[in-house]
Structures are given as structure tokens and as C-alpha cells.
Design a protein around this nucleic acid. Structure first.
Length: 364
DNA sequence: AAGTCGGGGAA
DNA sequence: TTCCCAGACTT
């Protein structure tokens, strides 16, 4: 039985690798594969669609072409290079990681056990760097890998269950235990197979070259696998924004411990959800406006999603001419520079439409 | 072990 | 509308 399993795993490995070498995409991040570039590209790809990641990756490398330039950066610069990508702690942790590597190693180490100690690098990224850059036999586990093996081997266990992971690791251990010339290629082949053929929706089973090995196909359970528990419904959030205008400048607010987008720069805000309220600032602006926000007329703006929050933006515009502002977390910013401070897509979208309105009525 | 953290493309 | 993606970190 075990020998049958082994020969099946070896056949799978060979057939997927063969497909990969004929059909692999020429993604830009596959050029010039230094450990630094692999680290950054794999981090940007986390939980991010390929097309979106590809656009932003080159921009990041333009700002920070190598380890030392990243390690020397300010956090706001790194955050801004991550503009629109989401999960912004990835950016902060990249900076922490770069500083850590520079101080401890000077360059990125080659062993999995060293890599995983680096901030921002978890099991997936450590395995990716070790295999792609250093030829280590470290299988990566991402959503693709979980899906294709759950299907091929009919693993009917919820993917967050540790039992699922142990079964998957057993298979991967066998697959990566053969004489493999380039384990990095195998990792990428498995992921690309999941991305292009064994897709979440509309898997290409009828023409799939793995079909005869696939238990889920045999048992018509492809669309039921893998087992994934659905997250709860999104929390409805009302996010009220104040746009204070004065002489073609708008008042920006450094969020500190706000409810969402912590440490981002935005506009003075109130977040309402159920019976809870959160205020983005607590100085004069809070006393004169935010504390009595229900007296003001807010106009509905865009909808936006942040992880498990469904956000409804609304806003009002005030001319704050001749009013002094106190608060270390507040500052005036010329209209044309605002987009250099906003990182989140939701705030960018809202500012863009508000700016258009102000411009349409002649500016302020 | 469970909760947190963005955004957008596809169906 | 709903789903979920080349995950890591905190609690």
C-alpha cells in the first residue's frame, strides 16, 4: 500500500514538473532571483491576487532595490510603497526583517531555521526562499498546495485542523524526499498547477493531466474539497469622515490607536459599529466637532471592505478658515500632496471624489 | 487555537 | 451580492 502511494506521489511529481517546464508563466519576479527579491515578491503575493501583486511588485523594487535600501528606510516610506496592497503589517514587518538581517547576518541566510526567525518570514516564505534560492528540500504550503492535495488524496478534513496539516506534510515529505534537482521548481510547479488547472472555481478536470491520479475526480467530490469553514458575516461599520478645508489644504490625521488602519494617515474620523464608537483624534477637533458628530450632516460616500468589516463611508466638508488647530496628530496638507500620505484604497477613493467636488465648486 | 489584518477580480 | 486568494503575527 505504502509503495503504491510512493509511486503515485513520484508520478505526480514528475507529471506536474513536466507540465510546469513546458507551460510556466514568465512572471517578472522570476527574473534575477536573489533571496531579497524572492522574499519581497513572496510577501507581496501573500493573500494577494497575482495580477494585483505583479503591478505593485516592480514599484516596490524601484523604491527599495536591495536589502540595504530597505533596511535604511523609514516606516512611512515602506508603507507607501505598499499602497493599495492591504495587510499593511506585511510592510512594517518587512522593514523589521530587513533591519534584523542587516544587523545579524549582513545578508539573508540560507537555512530554514534561520529564515523563519526573521520578522515577516513565516513557514511559507522561509520554505520558498530556502528552496528557490538555496536548493533546500523545503516544501511550501499555501492555499494552492492545500487545495490540490486535499483533492488528489481526498483529504476530508477541515484545512485549519492540525490533522489536515499533518497528513499534508506526510505527502509532501514523500514527494520532496526523492532525488529532486530543483525543489524550488517543484514548489512553484505545484502552486502554478493549483492556480491554473486545479482552480478554486471551475477546475479544469476534464482536460487535467492529473485526472487519473485524483481521488476527488474519481469520486465526483472535487467541488467539495478542500473543506473550508466560512468566516462569519462581515461586521457593518459606519465610518464618518471630516474634510476640513482651508486655502487649498486639507486637515490630515495621523491615526494612532484607531479601530481600523492603525498608524495610517487619514482624515479626522468617527467609526460607529453597533453601540460602539471610535474617534481618530481627541484634541480640539474632537471637542468642537467629533464629540457632537450627530449634529452634523454627513453625505453617503463609497463602500469599502477591510478584512471582515463592511465599511460605509460618509463624510462632510467644512471650511476651517481662521480656526486654530491643536493636536500633534493633526496637520494641514496641500491638496496636491494628499495622495502621498494615503495608503489605504478606501481613503484614497473617498478623497478622490471629495476633491472632485471641491474642484467642481471652485476650490476653497 | 482563535482572532486580526485589505483589497479587488471573478462568478 | 458573495467568495477567497503564493500567510504571519498577536493574544
Amino acid at each position: 500500500m505504502d509503495s503504491l502511494e510512493l509511486s503515485k506521489i513520484e508520478a505526480l511529481k514528475n507529471i506536474i514538473l513536466e507540465w510546469f517546464y513546458k507551460n510556466r508563466e514568465n512572471y517578472s519576479f522570476r527574473n534575477n532571483r536573489t533571496p531579497y527579491r524572492v522574499w519581497i515578491s513572496e510577501t507581496i503575493l501573500q493573500q494577494t491576487r497575482m495580477s494585483a501583486a505583479l503591478e505593485k511588485m516592480e514599484n516596490f523594487f524601484l523604491h527599495f532595490p536591495d536589502l540595504n535600501s530597505l533596511a535604511a528606510a523609514r516606516e512611512e516610506e515602506v508603507l507607501f510603497a505598499f499602497k493599495g496592497l492591504g495587510y499593511y503589517n506585511r510592510a512594517r514587518n518587512l522593514l523589521k526583517g530587513a533591519k534584523y538581517v542587516v544587523s545579524k547576518y549582513k545578508d539573508i541566510p540560507s537555512e530554514y531555521n534561520q529564515l523563519i526567525e526573521i520578522p515577516s518570514i513565516g513557514p511559507y516564505t522561509a520554505s520558498a526562499i530556502a528552496s528557490i534560492c538555496f536548493g533546500k528540500l523545503t516544501p511550501v504550503i499555501d492555499g494552492n498546495i492545500k487545495r490540490i492535495f486535499a483533492r488528489i488524496f481526498q483529504i476530508e478534513i477541515e484545512i485549519k485542523n492540525s490533522l489536515f496539516l499533518s497528513q499534508l506534510n506526510l505527502i509532501l515529505l514523500k514527494m520532496f524526499n526523492f532525488n529532486i534537482l530543483n525543489p524550488g521548481d517543484l514548489n512553484e510547479a505545484l502552486m502554478e498547477f493549483g492556480q491554473k488547472i486545479c482552480k478554486v472555481k471551475n477546475p479544469q478536470c476534464l482536460t487535467c493531466f492529473v485526472q487519473k491520479y485524483c481521488l476527488a475526480y474519481k469520486n465526483s467530490s472535487v467541488n467539495k474539497l478542500p473543506f473550508i469553514t466560512r468566516p462569519e458575516n462581515k461586521i457593518i461599520v459606519n465610518w464618518k469622515l471630516y474634510f476640513f478645508i482651508n486655502n487649498r489644504k486639507v486637515l490630515l490625521n495621523q491615526f494612532n490607536d484607531f479601530y481600523l488602519l492603525k498608524n495610517h494617515i487619514g482624515f479626522p474620523s468617527i467609526i460607529e459599529m453597533n453601540d460602539e464608537k471610535f474617534f481618530s483624534t481627541h484634541g480640539d477637533i474632537y471637542n468642537n466637532f467629533l464629540s457632537n458628530y450627530k449634529l452634523h450632516n454627513f453625505v453617503n460616500g463609497d463602500k469599502h471592505t477591510i478584512t471582515n468589516h463592511q465599511i460605509r463611508f460618509s463624510y462632510c466638508i467644512y471650511d476651517l478658515k481662521n480656526i486654530e488647530i491643536n493636536g500633534e496628530d493633526l496637520f494641514w496638507c496641500p491638496f496636491e500632496n494628499v495622495e502621498n500620505f494615503l495608503v489605504s484604497s478606501g481613503l484614497n477613493k473617498t478623497w478622490s471624489s471629495v476633491y472632485d467636488q471641491i474642484f467642481a465648486r471652485g476650490g476653497t
